[in-house]
Design a protein around this nucleic acid. Structure first.
Lengths: 200, 200
DNA sequence: TGCATAGCTATCCATATGGATAGATTAGTC
DNA sequence: GACTAATCTATCCATATGGATAGCTATGCA
């Protein structure tokens, strides 16, 4: 049979994802990828098809992980769960060493200005996931009477999305998750404030 | 005396600012700057000192303009003014052909990951301006009784900042100001909803 | 033990980058 | 009209980039 890969393909793509997360696409060279992930420049070409395909693979891996572990999916009808989702962001239990660089997909979206179709597809998936998560959560809250009857779910989904984006950008700007603490707490307070007055 | 510049220095820096706005720093070459602004590569070196100094000059110019024309400065104690500031963002009267690329300073902050001190200084100035603007506006509203007495100004400043950032990122992601309409309207609705119940 | 397969090392290449420089050109001044 | 100074044009340069290729090496089955 053949010779075995120097680094596990799975480990390799995780490492590549972390690199793109921090440096973005254009500011990361294939030689640096080789040095820091162990993926040979040869393998980068023959196995992954080049730098851009590897990048897209990293985006997909990011989205898969995000979907399972990080996306807002609280549908227990509790505003607190939404608030906590924001609070956790500034003090994450998982992967703090990469999440301090913000959100890989937001970063990529900013970098490519919506001019790369492949990146756009991933961005669409990402925004759908986040919007859908918030909508499901707020729908459940409204259904259980956690907010007043005239609460505009669609509008507040957009508000939550904007807040989530802002929080991630602020964190990236400083490179520290904790730098988003004030903002995260403020958003959490806003969300909790949506509780039906009688229930407070 | 000496020969006169091919393009007005003022026109040149405006054009350079627009280019950096769209393309960012790393993805814009000096030859492209030369072609699209009229700034000779020679002049870029001798007069502006190189690509990075020109970029920083563009950032400063952006901030100066932002401070005068775009920063939130409504201190009339009216929540509507704050709401309108967001609504205007998705249908700007001024410079729609560049504002559709988001906010130059946010873009730069994302690109440099807080690792360039000169860029950091500009980012600090920017965030101070926005936070200060929102705080002044909300303070005035609270003072005139436009919101309830227990309204947490500091927290809602952070909420507005996160919303403003999110809005600009969404717009950049699509390259169209109008793409931020739903989000802008939602944020405006949120702000108007802060009005003291008795006043609604 | 030998052979086939796939990965690795080490180059090579065309291109693009930011920057430097030398000679031509244009302006205002004496 | 000649001189001076700043800008322009046209190169040149060292470096870095993504990608391609040729020969070496390790792996596991026959």
């Amino acid at each position: 049979m053949s010779r075995s890969r120097k680094v596990e393909p799975e480990t390799a793509i995780q490492a590549a994802m972390a690199l793109f997360w921090k440096h973005g696409y254009h500011d990361l060279g294939t030689r640096q990828i080789e040095k820091e992930t162990g993926i040979t420049r040869f393998t980068l070409q023959t196995v992954y098809g080049g730098k851009m395909p590897l990048f897209l693979k990293a985006l997909d891996r990011y989205l898969d992980t995000f979907e399972v572990h990080a996306a807002p999916t609280m549908s227990d009808g509790n505003l607190d769960a939404i608030a906590a989702w924001f609070e956790t962001r500034s003090d994450p239990v998982m992967f703090p060493e990469v999440t301090c660089y913000g959100c890989l997909l937001l970063n990529s979206t900013v970098e490519f200005v919506g001019e790369n179709e492949e990146v756009n597809l991933r961005a669409d998936r990402f925004f759908d996931m986040v919007r859908g998560g918030f909508r499901g959560a707020l729908d459940a809250v409204k259904e259980t009477g956690g907010v007043s009857a005239d609460f505009d779910v669609d509008a507040m989904v957009e508000v939550l999305l904007s807040a989530a984006i802002g929080l991630n950008i602020v964190i990236r700007a400083s490179g520290r998750n904790a730098a988003g603490a004030d903002m995260a707490n403020a958003i959490a307070a806003l969300v909790r404030g949506w509780a039906r007055p009688a229930d407070v």
